Simulated scan of single mutants.
Amino acid sequence: MLLSIVYISSAVSPFSDEALAELLEKSRANNSASELTGMLLYRDGHFMQALEGDDAAVRSVYAIVSADPRHDGVRTLLEEQIDERRFPEWSMGFRALTESGIRDIPGYSSFFQERSNPVDWGTPSRARMLLEWFRYHNAA
């Protein structure tokens, strides 16, 4: 069994494109070393992240994230045991839900480009629907 945690948080101050690229690069390296997979969404200073892997590794990273002073309001939306990874190929899939100058960052994709309304990330059922959407739409 694997553990999956999905959480939301708010940045204390908005992340620049450079700060997002640095966060993504470090997250991918750390997640690969810990055999974690998942995805990270960012929009207008708000994050949603799914982490999945060994129970102890997921909880360790989540504790670090919860204590990170760059964001607050960390709230768990889903915590569940899963039989298989939803994002097995993604050390950290990424999508900034803006169209600023991040298109050249490795991992960028055009998810949600067709959606004009912000996604309400505040409920477990919507988080689960969002995870399923990402699971069946491969990153470009």
Rank of each mutant, 00 (worst) to 15 (best):
Ser4Gly: 07
Val6Arg: 01
Ser9Trp: 05
Ser10Pro: 00
Ser13Ala: 14
Ser13Asp: 13
Phe15Glu: 02
Asp17Trp: 05
Ala19Trp: 06
Ala21Arg: 02
Leu23Ser: 03
Lys26Ala: 12
Ala29Met: 15
Ala29Thr: 14
Asn30Arg: 07
Asn30Glu: 06
Asn31Arg: 07
Leu36Asp: 03
Gly38Met: 04
Leu40Thr: 00
Leu40Ser: 00
Leu40Ala: 06
Phe47Gly: 02
Phe47Arg: 01
Met48Ala: 02
Gly53Gln: 07
Ala56Tyr: 05
Ala57Tyr: 03
Val58Ser: 02
Ser60Tyr: 06
Val61Gln: 02
Val61Ala: 09
Tyr62Leu: 14
Ala63Ser: 10
Ala63Thr: 09
Ile64Met: 10
Val65Ala: 01
Ser66Lys: 08
Asp68Trp: 01
Pro69Ala: 11
Arg70Leu: 01
His71Cys: 14
Val74Met: 03
Leu77Met: 09
Glu79Phe: 00
Glu79Cys: 08
Phe87Arg: 02
Trp90Asn: 05
Ser91Ile: 11
Phe94Asp: 04
Phe94Trp: 09
Arg95Gly: 05
Ser100Met: 10
Gly101Thr: 10
Asp104Ala: 13
Asp104Lys: 11
Ile105Trp: 07
Pro106Trp: 08
Tyr108Arg: 14
Ser109Asn: 15
Arg115Asn: 09
Asn117Asp: 15
Trp121His: 08
Arg126Cys: 10
Arg126Glu: 15
Met129Gly: 10
Met129Arg: 12
Met129His: 10
Met129Ala: 14
Leu130Phe: 04
Leu131Lys: 02
Trp133Met: 15
Phe134Glu: 00
Arg135Ala: 12
Tyr136Asn: 15
